[in-house]
């Protein structure tokens, strides 16, 4: 009997939970805030769904409701992607090690 492709996706999902579990435990507590902002940014990969949703524009150039919902979703996800990654970068730049010798 053939295996339903759903089972494959479920396997990916379950394995990813385990990967996530071990990876996140190895994150140093001092970087927990950047962790939250970066997970925020990457969860906005939902934008791929939004792009597909918005793409269904037909040849008469008219939007239906589902295209508009997709466009709004793209905007929201883009806020998150740019905002999330950039704010993470901004924070990570601030983490500095002690300079050798005297601190000014």
């Amino acid at each position: 009997m053939e295996i339903d492709p759903f089972i494959f996706r479920l396997s990916i999902f379950v394995l990813s939970i385990f990967v996530g579990y071990y990876v996140v435990w190895s994150v140093t507590p001092s970087l927990h805030t950047p962790l939250m902002s970066v997970t925020n940014a990457i969860s906005s990969v939902i934008i791929v769904g939004a792009i597909v949703a918005a793409s269904g524009l037909d040849s008469e150039n008219s939007f239906d409701l589902s295209n508009i919902l997709g466009l709004v979703a793209i905007t929201l996800a883009a806020i998150n992607i740019f905002g999330g990654f950039l704010v993470t970068q901004r924070m990570l730049k601030m983490y500095k090690k002690k300079k050798k010798g005297k601190v000014k």
């Binding site: 492709p5 939970i17 996530g20 579990y21 996140v24 435990w25 990457i42 939902i46």
Partner: peptide, 23 residues
């Protein structure tokens, strides 16, 4: 991600979900 059958979304969802749960 499951609905759209998109691996990137499934992996990310699982990562973020477990990250938030651990925190």
């Amino acid at each position: 991600g499951f609905t759209l059958e998109n691996t990137a979304l499934i992996i990310t969802g699982a990562l973020v979900g477990s990250s938030g749960a651990i925190l």
